[in-house]
Design a protein around this nucleic acid. Structure first.
Lengths: 251, 251
DNA sequence: CGAAACGTTGATAAGTTTCAACCATCGTGG
DNA sequence: CCACGATGGTTGAAACTTATCAACGTTTCG
C-alpha cells in the first residue's frame, strides 16, 4: 500500500494523480480534469520546516497539498502563535489571499511536502469554464471553515484533557478518511509545541496532559507515529462524536 | 441616515435593496442582479431570540442577513456553547449545510432580523449562469473563514482583557464598515453571556473584565449601544491592528 | 407587585502558566 | 570515536489567571 508520504512527488499530469484515485475523493469528468490541469502552474517539492507563505505576504499562491503535512497559523505582535488548522493531503489553501490581497495567515510545512500549485488568477477562469468546479472550490472553503469552527469550539470550551484528546482523534480521523491510517496508527510529525500552539495551551501543560492520556492507555506516540489505543475512550473524553464522512472534492 | 435596524424589511425586489447601495459593497451588473433575484426564495422577518437553524438540522436554508444581528454557534453534549461568529447585515450563511447535508452549527437571532432566503439547490444554478457570482460566494466563504480564524487566535492566545477589547473593536469595525456606526457608537444587542460564550470566558470573569475596560475609560455600554471612548487604546490592549477594508460582495 | 432576565461583587477553588531544572536523542565536527 | 550543541521531551514547585459559588442589585414587563 502506498502511503503518499514525504518523498512522493506530484505528477505533472493530473491524469496520473494518485491522490485523486483514493476512495475519499469525488470522481470528476475528463473535461473537469482538463480544466484543472489547465489551471495548474507547477508541482513543487518543499522541505520540512519551510515557511511557504508568510503572514501579510502579497500575491501568495493557491495550492493543494499532494503529500505531507503543513499548517496555517497566525501570530500576535509579541510572538504568540495560534495554529489555525493542519493541512493534509487533498487540502486546498491560499483562497483567502486570492481575494483578500495579503495573506491573512502563514503556512508552514511539518514534513517534506509535494504541492500542486495553481496559476495566479486562474480561479476566475476555472469558474467560467467549469462552474461545477467553482462550486467544489466553495465547498472546500466551507469545509476548511468547518474545521476551524471545530477548533474554535475546542479552544473556547474544552479543558486541557479534552482538547488534547480532541486533537489526536481529529487528526487520526482525517488521515483515516484519506486512507492514510494503518492498523490504528498514523504518521505524526507534530512536536508538543505544535500541539500547544494549536490548542491554546502552554507547552508544559500540554506535555503533562499528553502524559496523562498516555498513562490512561488511550494513546501512544512512538517512532514518529501516533497510535490510538482506545479511540472509544478518547472520543468520550473529548466529547467528540463525528458526522459521517462524505466524498471530498479535490482540485 | 437610515440605519437598517430591526424593523427594516428586505424588499421583494433586489433592485430595491438598500443594503446593496451602501459603499461597502461591490456594484454588480444588471444581469448578475437578475440571477440573484432568480435564486432568491423569499424575504423573512424573524423575531429576536429565534433559533433559525438548529445544530444537526437537515436541509437548512442559505440566507443573507439584510438587517439585524445573529450568531452562529456550536454546543457540546453537556451544554457548553461556543459562539463562532456574529452575523451582521450583508453576511451570507448556511453554505456549510448546502454541501455537508446536516447543519454543523446553529444560528440564533440577537435582534429582530430581516433575512433574504435563497431557494434550495439554487446555488449550482447560480454558478452556471453567473460564474462571477460563484466566485463571489467563494469569497464570502473565505471571508467568513477569516473571521473565525481571528476568533480562534483570540480564544487561543489572548488573555481575558485582550479578548474583550478585541471583540468590542472587531464588532465596531465591522459595523462601521457597513455604515452602521454613528459618532463612535453602534447598536449592541449582546448580553454578557453572549460575550462570554464567544470568547471562551466565564460569565463572571467577563463581567469583571468588561468593568475593568470601562473603568479604564476605553468604552461604555449604554441604552443598548456600545460607545468606544478610546479606540486607539483598545486596539493597543487587544494587540489588534486591522488590514484596510475592501469592497465586499453581496448575494 | 412580583417574577424573570441581566448585571455586579467578593470569597474561594481549580486549572493553567511560568520558572527552573534535568534527561534523551540525534547529527556534526574535531 | 567521542564530545558537543541543538532540539524535543519530562518533571516539580510556585505564581497567576480564570472558574465556581453565592449573594445581592437593577431593570423590565406582565
Amino acid at each position: 500500500m502506498t502511503t503518499l508520504q514525504a518523498k512522493v512527488e506530484c505528477p505533472p499530469n493530473c491524469k496520473a494523480c494518485e491522490l485523486r484515485d483514493r476512495p475519499a475523493f469525488v470522481r470528476v469528468s475528463d473535461a473537469a480534469l482538463e480544466a484543472i490541469q489547465h489551471a495548474r502552474s507547477h508541482a513543487l517539492q518543499v522541505p520540512a520546516g519551510s515557511t511557504l507563505i508568510y503572514e501579510g505576504q502579497r500575491n501568495a499562491q493557491l495550492f493543494t497539498v499532494y503529500s505531507g503535512w503543513a499548517f496555517r497559523y497566525k501570530t500576535l505582535p509579541d510572538g504568540r502563535r495560534q495554529i489555525l488548522n493542519f493541512l493534509l493531503p487533498g487540502d486546498l489553501t491560499g483562497l483567502q489571499q486570492v481575494f483578500g490581497g495579503d495573506a491573512a495567515c502563514g503556512v508552514e510545512l511539518l514534513t517534506d511536502c509535494a504541492l500542486c500549485v495553481f496559476k495566479d488568477n486562474s480561479l476566475m477562469q476555472l469558474y467560467s469554464v467549469q462552474p461545477r468546479l467553482g462550486y467544489d472550490v466553495t465547498w472546500l472553503a466551507a469545509r476548511e471553515g468547518q474545521h476551524v469552527d471545530d477548533n474554535l469550539l475546542t479552544a473556547g470550551q474544552r479543558n486541557a484533557l479534552e482538547r488534547v484528546a480532541m486533537l489526536l482523534l481529529h487528526l487520526y480521523r482525517r488521515m483515516d478518511r484519506i486512507g492514510q491510517a494503518e492498523s490504528g496508527s498514523i504518521v505524526f510529525p507534530l512536536t508538543q509545541q505544535h500541539i500547544a500552539d494549536s490548542l491554546g495551551l502552554s507547552l508544559v501543560h500540554t506535555n503533562k496532559t499528553l502524559r496523562r492520556l498516555a498513562q490512561m492507555g488511550l494513546h501512544k506516540v512512538q517512532a514518529g507515529r501516533l497510535h490510538l489505543l482506545n479511540p472509544r475512550a478518547l472520543s468520550s473524553v473529548a466529547e467528540y462524536y463525528d458526522t459521517p464522512p462524505r466524498l471530498l472534492p479535490l482540485l
